[in-house]
Amino acid sequence: MALSKKDIQQIAHLARIEVSDDEIADYVDKLSQIIGLVDQLQQVNTTDVVPMAHPSDMYQRLRDDEVSEVNQRELFQRNASAVTDGLYRVPKVLD
């Protein structure tokens, strides 16, 4: 299946990736090839096949409700380039 420029722009928006006009043709071309590859699966009969979300057939282990973490704000915020008063700064968030 071939993807359109509009498809690409829509999905790129969902994924928050800027795709400029000079890149879009390449995206259309390569993603259409990839989708063409994965479209092979449409031919497979999977009636009654249980989807496999995970290779492990184990169950979720539960953790005791204990506070084990201490405040390491300073350490963590060394990786952040925009911090004021301990808050991470971002462009204005609209409600």
């Binding site: 409700d65 204990e66 506070v67 973490e69 405040n71 704000r73 915020q77 301990g86 808050l87 991470y88």
Partner: peptide
């Protein structure tokens, strides 16, 4: 709960910003 749903950070209300946010 005392700790968060997926981490061992405290859930106590009203702490200084980002002091109860672990990795």
């Amino acid at each position: 709960t005392r700790s968060k749903i997926f981490s061992g950070a405290s859930t106590a209300y009203g702490a200084e910003p980002n002091t109860q946010a672990c990795a």
